[in-house]
Design a protein around this nucleic acid. Structure first.
Length: 484
DNA sequence: TTTTGAGTTGTTCGA
DNA sequence: GTCGAACAACTCAAA
């Protein structure tokens, strides 16, 4: 029934692009008219691209399940294999006599090097290899200053992007994915053990997220119709659900920035202009992170500003554990860290607060915070995560100035004035009124008692005094400026 | 060519 | 209570 009889198949290698719609590699493969072998490789041993964190593995498992269903409903069969990508591809090439391999690009240092080597190798062996952009509005090498060098400041970068010809219209999902007639062995998804068992920390994830392409497009539609208008004002309040929550879907490529761009550009969205521009500029920040990563491939683990290289970070100890578990004694910080642990996600405003707290109040290396986020975020992204951490630490490009030290109490009063967010994630504080919930150590003894709080027992005292920590950080960071 | 002003997300201090 | 200044150094584009 398919055009597959005797024809050599094309392998479509899925990586960070787990979708059928607007998938250029898949679309190009379908256009060839050849039978397809959709393939995903779990390459999590050795020196491959960074091994996925726990939360991401949970998401991946769900996402692959959805992708497999979407492919099957179109007549195809997703092949799942675990191992070193080069070796798995070799096996499948020789087993199927495939004539070509198509994929969408990745942008991390290791990923680029491996893709390039693989492309050379396969091409030399007579294979056709084609790669595509499925992840960005503009390839990082196409956006540059008038002198041809890459940007280091967001605003001019985004202006330059907006001045470029807009992205093409998204590609429709193919109706049919003609399957190769050869039976290619596939792993059972369950055998990869991507889901946590003991302890199963993912229970809170299940009711919040719908991983997969269908969940992503549903979320986008809902956001545009219900939240876009209030986005500019509401996006900073973590108790209100006014952000898009699309980040994990973007991280796994279940939706493309191009699809988002065109959906937001529809004429009937024009009434929410300020929200629309604000939202699209968040997509711009993602683009900027990839731009920086591409042009500074070591930023994942190296300070963009090298004068920070000698910074005397504190050795992580009890305070680091308190930060990770949400027991710093600062309610907003603790609520945010617990939101991360319980849901695999944290509101953007809170990411800045907890990041600033770790780096400035505790003087702990941003890389440790970045690793914790990498492990616990369902939206852990190879560009966004390190770029965001370098921004808050002050060592990045276009970074927050070193004297910008968030006051966790002021931030709390400003963005969670009634303490709803705190009460949700720190229920042991829920009996405090909104006057005292932001700094329980200042609450009168009677109020604490009435709220059932025994400071130091049921909720910790602050692990560090804000005024002291601020002064210490300013001094430490000022020394960094001198050593240039 | 050089100069100038502005740049995601803040806080504190003193008038 | 409100308000402006100060808290660096660097990037980038416009004047």
């Amino acid at each position: 029934m398919s055009a597959s009889t005797g024809e050599r198949p094309v392998i479509v290698w899925f990586r960070e692009d787990l979708r059928i719609g607007d998938n250029p590699a898949l679309d190009a493969a379908v256009q060839t008219g050849s039978p397809l072998i959709p393939l995903f490789i779990l390459d999590d041993a050795g020196e491959g691209p960074r091994k996925l964190g726990g939360a991401s593995r949970w998401w991946l498992s769900k996402s692959l399940h959805g992708l497999g269903q979407d492919i099957r409903s179109r007549g195809g069969q997703l092949v799942l294999r675990r191992g070193r990508s080069e070796q798995v591809l070799d096996e499948i090439l020789s087993a199927t006599n495939a004539v070509a391999v198509f994929w969408n690009r990745r942008y991390g240092k290791v990923a680029i090097a491996r893709d390039k080597a693989l492309k050379d190798d396969l091409t030399n062996r007579g294979m056709e290899v084609r790669s595509f952009n499925a992840r960005l509005l503009h390839e990082p090498w196409t956006v540059c200053k008038k002198d041809g060098t890459p940007f280091r400041v967001f605003t001019p970068f985004w202006k330059a992007c907006l001045a470029m010809p807009g992205p093409d219209r998204p590609l429709p999902a193919p109706d049919r994915l003609p399957s190769a007639e050869i039976d290619v062995p596939s792993d059972d998804l369950g055998s990869w053990a991507l889901q946590p068992t003991k302890p199963n920390w993912s229970l809170g994830f299940e009711k919040l997220w719908s991983p997969g392409e269908t969940g992503a497009s549903g979320l986008l539609a809902e956001f545009l119709t219900e939240k876009l208008a209030g986005y500019s004002e509401g996006r900073d309040r973590p108790a209100d659900d006014l952000t898009s929550r699309l980040s994990p879907h973007l991280a796994f490529g279940e939706i493309s920035p191009r699809q988002i761009h065109w959906a937001a550009e529809r004429p009937d969205r024009r009434s929410s202009d300020s929200g629309r521009h604000k939202f699209l500029s968040e997509i711009g920040w993602r683009e900027f992170a990839y731009h920086l990563l591409y042009h500074n491939p070591d930023l994942t683990h190296t300070n963009l500003q090298s004068r920070f290289d000698g910074f005397g970070w504190e050795k992580p100890g009890d305070t680091f554990d308190a930060w990770k578990s949400g027991h710093t004694g600062y309610p907003l910080v603790d609520a945010a860290m617990r939101q991360l642990w319980q849901t695999g996600w944290m509101h953007n405003r809170c990411r800045m607060v907890v990041g600033s707290f770790l780096v400035k109040h505790l003087l702990i290396d941003w890389r440790l915070g970045e690793e914790w986020f990498w492990d616990t975020l369902v939206d852990a992204d190879p560009a966004n995560n390190p770029v965001g951490w370098q921004w808050i630490a002050g060592c990045g490009a276009d970074a927050a100035p070193y004297f910008r030290i968030f006051n966790p109490v002021l931030q709390s009063r400003k963005f969670d004035p009634e303490g709803r967010y705190i009460r949700h994630f720190c229920p042991e504080l829920s009996g405090l009124d909104s006057k005292h919930i932001h700094e329980p150590w200042k609450a009168p003894a009677g109020d604490l008692e009435a709220a059932g709080i025994d400071l130091g027992q049921t909720y910790p005292r602050p692990v560090v005094d804000h005024k002291f920590a601020r002064k210490r950080a300013l001094e430490a960071f000022a020394r960094t400026q001198d050593t240039d």
